[in-house]
Deep mutational scan, measured.
Amino acid sequence: EQLARLKREFNENRYLTERRRQQLSSELGLNEAQIKIWFQNERA
């Protein structure tokens, strides 16, 4: 579920704002660094 949600977010926007990253962190139970790194890896 977390992965599917991250992929949906990535398809909508390849870059997250700090606020959006905080929201996802709270909703998915991941820390902000994990989300940031995931997005960086997807863009690579």
Score class of each variant (00 low, 15 high):
E1C: 13
E1I: 10
Q2W: 13
Q2G: 04
Q2S: 08
Q2E: 05
L3G: 01
L3V: 09
L3I: 13
A4D: 08
A4P: 03
R5A: 10
R5G: 04
R5W: 05
R5H: 05
R5K: 06
R5Y: 06
L6P: 00
K7H: 10
K7N: 03
K7F: 07
K7V: 08
R8Y: 08
E9T: 03
F10K: 02
F10R: 02
F10G: 01
F10N: 02
N11A: 15
N11Q: 14
N11M: 14
N11E: 14
E12G: 04
E12C: 14
E12S: 07
E12W: 10
E12F: 09
N13S: 08
N13L: 07
R14F: 03
R14P: 15
R14W: 08
R14A: 10
R14T: 05
R14V: 04
Y15W: 13
Y15A: 06
Y15L: 08
Y15G: 04
L16E: 05
L16R: 04
L16M: 05
L16G: 02
T17I: 02
T17G: 06
T17N: 11
E18G: 11
E18Y: 09
E18R: 15
E18L: 12
R19I: 12
R20Q: 12
R20D: 04
R20G: 03
R20M: 11
R20V: 07
R21N: 07
R21H: 03
R21E: 05
Q22P: 02
Q22F: 09
Q22E: 07
Q23D: 08
Q23T: 10
Q23A: 11
L24S: 01
L24W: 02
L24Y: 02
S25L: 09
S26C: 13
S26G: 07
S26E: 14
S26Y: 14
E27D: 07
E27H: 06
E27Q: 07
E27M: 08
L28M: 06
G29H: 04
G29K: 04
G29V: 02
L30S: 00
L30H: 02
L30N: 01
N31R: 08
N31V: 05
E32P: 11
E32R: 04
E32C: 05
A33M: 14
A33K: 10
A33T: 14
A33L: 14
Q34W: 15
Q34T: 14
I35F: 02
I35C: 04
I35N: 02
K36Y: 13
K36T: 15
K36V: 15
K36N: 14
I37M: 12
I37P: 00
I37K: 12
I37L: 11
W38S: 01
W38Y: 06
W38G: 00
Q40I: 11
Q40H: 09
Q40D: 14
N41F: 08
N41L: 11
N41H: 11
N41R: 12
N41M: 13
E42G: 00
R43A: 12
R43Y: 11
R43I: 13
A44T: 08
A44R: 11
A44Y: 10
A44S: 09
A44I: 12
